[in-house]
Design a protein around this nucleic acid. Structure first.
Lengths: 223, 223
DNA sequence: TTTAAATTCATCCGAATGGGTGAATGCACT
DNA sequence: AGTGCATTCACCCATTCGGATGAATTTAAA
């Protein structure tokens, strides 16, 4: 999603924030302008300002931003949390609440839509900007985690006997669904060798099969 | 992880915030006390205050909290971001940065450890409290999604030809690492029948093997 | 009622996998 | 020099898996 924006994810891509478009949903024009100014002074582009829910939904559709800043109270039938729910339903975007409301009920409702941030007015500029950056970065990383990477340290921490380098390498291929032959080819090793490593890895992982190994690895990576 | 804390996740559990323990890592005692007061006035418990990285690491180990507030600058060799990395490596906890530093380099480094929040001093109390609540809530929800239960609808949404009921059932067992024989036993069906369903499921999932099916399912559930 | 799809089961075959035994090499540590 | 460990490879065997073909039964829709 952010491929063309070249956001830093993991440290191997260049940053180019100037193309990151933010939609502001805020019914008070003065505050909206204020936020807008902060963003423009930084490396963001304001894709639009919506003063009510309908306008926000239209903007989302016609000029889809990369992130959204939402005021919760909007003086109309739908509020910011409703818009957030709409975003979650039809888009794949991070959003932050920037609002005066921090009462228990509102917060409770807000939690359900999983906002990337919640800033209570009066806010400070640097918190706003840092929060947006973090939100976008986390969101991008989350999207990239579709194929969660195995970490040797993390796996070994939970094993009685740790996987050796080779065993871990082989296990990574297995986690990607490769066959023994593919692993052998990719690692420039004999099929027999692969089988030995796999057998030993199963011992250490305490599993009887490839499938159970995949399940075990899934679990270990989440502990 | 939060089972006994009964945090609201999705609206089906009761709230009991008083047991949620927060670790504060902050080298300035006055600010630490200040944060501590805010938390205590709210529904949180301060599990400890660490004034440096070593103390933080010890606290994490001996009195593991449910969330951590981290100042980045700590006047010692390791800073808050290092502690965050340590948390990510060995624990499964949300943390927020609450710091004076918001320069580009610091923010860049902070992004890499995926903080649940980033608040720049001077901060406002309600933003702090709301941010922690949101962080913990999101983290709990995320944990629930990390072991994604297979949902037939979700899988089928991404397939040209949808899995039938039986095929989906079989696929669930496969995702759990079961062998064909185990599936047959569990479903009170012939091994031959299981094989037919699996073969057809592979066709629809467009994969050539059990392992690739597991990978595919992992991916589909995160889309 | 005919058609289509889903579900059930069988037999046969080749490929992939799991496991056992044995052995050679290199490397670090004592 | 000897010990242990990781790594490499070979051969053999039993089980599991993937796939092809064929067929009976049930269910849902046209």
């Amino acid at each position: 999603m952010y491929a063309d924006k070249e956001i830093q994810v993991g440290g191997y891509k260049t940053i180019n924030m100037s193309e990151i478009k933010i939609l502001i949903v805020e019914d008070e024009p003065i505050i909206a302008k204020n936020i807008s100014m902060y963003l423009n002074n930084s490396d963001f582009t304001v894709s639009g300002i919506a003063y009510d829910a309908d306008e926000a939904i239209l903007q989302l559709q016609q000029n889809t931003p990369d992130a959204v800043i939402l005021d919760i109270n909007l003086d109309c039938e739908k509020d910011g949390i409703d818009i957030a729910a709409h975003i979650n339903q039809g888009y794949h975007l991070p959003f932050l609440f920037l609002t005066s409301y921090s009462d228990k009920e509102t917060l409770q409702r807000a939690k359900l839509v999983e906002p990337s941030g919640y800033i209570v007015k009066p806010f400070n500029e640097r918190t706003l900007l840092a929060s947006i950056e973090i939100a976008i970065s986390n969101f991008a990383q989350k999207s990239n985690k579709d194929v969660p990477e195995l970490k040797q340290e993390k796996i070994n921490k939970h094993l009685l006997s740790p996987l050796s380098e080779r065993e871990f390498s082989v296990v990574q291929y297995i986690y990607q669904g490769k066959t023994n032959n593919q692993v052998a080819t990719d690692m420039f090793l004999s099929l027999n060798t692969i089988k030995v490593h796999i057998k030993n890895a199963y011992l250490k992982l305490d599993v009887p099969s490839r499938s159970m190994a995949m399940v075990r690895l899934r679990e270990l990576m989440l502990k």
